[in-house]
Design a protein around this nucleic acid. Structure first.
Length: 743
DNA sequence: AGTCATCTAGGC
DNA sequence: CCTAGATGACTG
């Protein structure tokens, strides 16, 4: 007893949400029992002159910091840590691997309310039920309020009432209508405790779908490995029924009483998957992405953390959500670059998900019609198990793809004569046409026909894009915009011409070419308003659109069953990029766009307009498909010792001063060279491909090594030293481990 | 990052 | 002599 009292109270080592590569030590105040303190707890700590949330990393016997400078923590925010030891190991791994400050990595694991120190209490989700009056009420009387009618009918189907999440999934913009119904005393907030009947019923409802042999085999193979770590790469052509495979495997995991994490690259893809999951599974499904409110995300986080949620569907920000009974991680569209966070903590949700699966000893399932070269390489090397779904479901034929040489052919706003004829034929049959052009706006530049002046952004090395309808010139790299000028700013001449092609320009010419045909344009400019994308998709699927025109958002996930002709207007942009990732991106995009055609019983055809019909990327892709392309691209990467045959880390620097970034990176390079024992390549510093952007001058330094550990060791040594380089004013640097683009 | 003490150029 | 804005030091 006496011994225990003599022993000094332990020191708390704490990670604070600041961009500093070190931890901070605190004392335990007498009011707090030391036994309570476990790693992972959220603490409130005095930090400088403010209070901040800190995360307890470890308890130490002594501190390097002299006792007089140590402060006591102000409080403990949780009774028990919200993160499990496994979660903590994952965060430590990620901070080390991506060389990012631990406090910021911890912060990224929590929803913003918990980050700010709010209590981790899970309110019962609001639920509504019909009143006696509401049960009697005839929905037909609400003819003039269609949304209220819709809601009332939905409640009629569900005598147990509906939660806000369920309402959001079935009726959009439900809140005002619900308010109206409540005001009419037809609805009320359900204050009865809900019996958890859901937990009693089997997790899978609805009819099992009959699968083809490949689907069945894929399901069986993953299910045979459910009790241990393993990575499965599900390569399924568009329309091959990947989702059904996911759902059958998820069903098996749910039957074991375990949780499933499903990650998607983009928010726009969550509603359709959520709907399918809700139809199939009678379990609590939580959704988490950045378009939800903080309260919604915190609710999803806590439901999963406390174990009541069974499926978490989210984007990369959902990756670190605690899942005490994790049984499976699924990552759909695994090739998508959106899984890589592109600022501050630059983690790859795909790569971290695999580490998470490994730490939790559960399988990870990666799915894509166009797997990344890294994943295909891992499959070849035997690290991943490759599962293939080569056939479209329902015997839909693969579309016929052909290159259309447009050299020396007259173009009308980017559309050649032969393509025009094909479009006309398709429209005459009453079928839909999809035109893909990966550039929004009217035209990518405005040029003076007299003197050659081009409208440039003053903050970036970029041309201003013409937005004709809005009469604006806009930079797509910063938020600069200005009115569309009528005369040249250099020679005052008035013969200004739009040069090049954007979706807005193509949209303008289509009514003249195809009178009476309905055109829908889908790009960031037309879908910015909430709900407008959904409306357009509905319009298309109900057959109220003949020509669909759009940018890459067309290539992602959406199904257009009545489209039988797909044309890529400008295939060539991206064929000759300086970034070695560009070829892979382009091939994936082409294949994804091709996948939009001929999904149902109608055979589809695809036309790629190109001025480089002999380009090996295109010819290989047409002749041998994505796999042929991938084989060739991997051979090229190997010959050039590029990833995945080597590993990269990129230092990026930007500053308002044009010379300081380079000087800073020279210093980093010298540091890297001093004491360099391994063979890590240090390339640069070079100006970024867009040297000036949003008013900053940008440089980069690339490190490359075939040995990942050697590269990591160099970074381990480099980072503390870089921290010591006297920081120039207004200079920002960041490190990107495994960069997915070099811009 | 956020805060604050210190320095500096320009205003009266 | 005063002060707004830039600069740098520091966070336990």
């Amino acid at each position: 007893m006496a011994k225990l009292q003599e022993k000094a109270a332990p020191i708390l080592r704490v990670a604070v949400d600041v961009p500093l590569y070190r931890l901070f030590d605190y004392e335990i105040p007498e009011t707090i029992a030391a036994e309570r303190l476990k790693p992972g707890l959220r603490l409130s700590v005095p930090f400088g002159r403010v209070q901040k949330t800190g995360y307890l990393v470890s308890l130490e016997e002594r501190s390097e910091v002299s006792g007089v400078r140590l402060k006591p923590i102000a409080g403990v925010l949780d009774r028990e840590p919200l993160l499990s030891p496994g979660d903590l190991r994952l965060l430590h791994w990620a901070a080390r691997y991506y060389h990012h400050p631990l406090g910021e990595v911890f912060a990224s694991a929590f929803p913003s309310g918990l980050r700010q120190g709010r209590a981790a209490v899970l309110g019962r989700p609001a639920r509504y039920v019909l009143t006696a009056q509401g049960r009697e009420f005839e929905p037909g009387l609400l003819q003039r309020a269609p949304r209220q009618k819709l809601l009332l009918e939905a409640f009629r189907q569900c005598p147990d009432g509906l939660s806000e999440a369920e309402l959001a999934a079935s009726v959009d913009n439900w809140r005002p209508a619900l308010k109206q119904l409540a005001a009419k005393a037809l609805l009320q907030l359900d204050d009865a405790e809900i019996a958890f009947a859901v937990a009693e019923s089997p997790p899978v409802k609805g009819n099992p779908v009959v699968c083809n042999p490949e689907q069945t085999a894929a399901v069986a193979e993953v299910c045979a490995g459910l009790d241990r770590f393993g990575v499965f790469l599900l390569e399924g052509v568009t329309g091959s029924g990947k989702t059904e495979v996911y759902m059958q495997i998820i069903g098996k995991v749910l039957e074991r009483g375990l949780q499933v994490l499903v990650l998607l690259p983009e928010i726009t893809l969550t509603p359709q998957l959520e709907n399918r999951f809700r139809q199939r599974f009678a379990v609590e499904i939580e959704v988490s992405h950045s378009k939800l409110t903080d309260a919604q995300r915190q609710h999803a986080w806590l439901s999963m953390q406390q174990g009541s949620g069974a499926i978490l569907l989210g984007t990369r920000s959902a990756l670190f959500t605690p899942l005490p009974r994790l049984g499976l991680i699924i990552l759909d569209e695994e090739h998508d670059a959106s899984f890589k966070q592109q600022e501050s903590f630059r983690f790859s949700a795909r790569d971290v998900a695999i580490v998470r699966a490994k730490l939790a000893n559960v399988p990870a399932l990666l799915g894509s019609a166009t797997p990344s070269l890294e994943s295909l390489y891992n499959a070849q090397a035997g690290r991943y198990r490759l599962l293939r779904l080569p056939n479209r479901a329902g015997n839909a034929a693969a579309p016929a793809v052909r290159l259309l040489d447009i050299r020396n052919k007259p173009l009308q706003e980017g559309i050649s004569e032969p393509l025009l004829a094909e479009i006309r034929q398709t429209l005459e049959k009453g079928e839909q046409v999809l035109l893909f052009l990966n550039r929004r706006g009217f035209a990518p530049r405005l040029i003076c026909h007299d003197c050659g002046w081009v409208a440039r952004c003053t903050h970036c090395d970029a041309n201003l894009v013409i937005h004709f309808r809005e009469q604006k010139l806009r930079c797509h790299h910063c938020d600069a915009e200005q009115p569309l000028v009528k005369s040249c700013l250099s020679c005052t001449g008035s013969t200004l011409r739009p040069l090049g092609l954007g979706t807005e320009r193509v949209e303008q010419i289509l009514p003249g070419l195809f009178p009476d045909k309905a055109v829908v344009r889908l790009d960031r400019d037309t879908t910015q308003r909430k709900g407008s994308l959904e409306n357009y998709l509905k319009q298309i699927n109900e057959g109220r659109a003949d020509i669909i025109l759009g940018t890459q958002m067309l290539a992602k996930g959406h199904h257009f069953p009545n489209v039988t002709l797909v044309a890529i207007l400008d295939t060539d942009s991206g064929l000759y990029s300086i970034d070695f990732h560009a070829a892979e991106r382009l091939a994936q995009m082409i294949v994804q766009v091709i996948g939009r055609a001929g999904r149902a019983d109608k055979p589809g055809s695809v036309i790629l307009q190109t001025r480089h019909p002999g380009h090996p990327l295109l010819t290989t892709l047409i002749r041998e498909g994505y796999n042929g392309f991938a084989r060739q691209a991997l051979a090229e990467r190997k010959a050039a010792a590029l990833p995945p045959f080597s590993h990269q880390a990129l230092f990026r620097v930007q500053a308002g001063d044009p010379f300081k970034p380079k000087a800073f990176l020279e210093a980093v390079k010298n540091l890297a060279a001093a004491g360099q024992t391994g063979g890590t390549l240090v390339l640069g510093p070079v100006a970024a491909p867009m040297a000036k952007r949003a008013g900053s001058y940008r440089y980069q330094l690339l490190l490359q090594d075939a040995n990942r550990q050697a590269l990591q060791r160099l970074l381990d040594r480099l980072l503390p030293e870089i921290d010591k380089i006297k920081k120039e004013k207004n200079l920002r640097w960041s490190l990107d481990v495994d960069p997915v683009d070099l811009y």
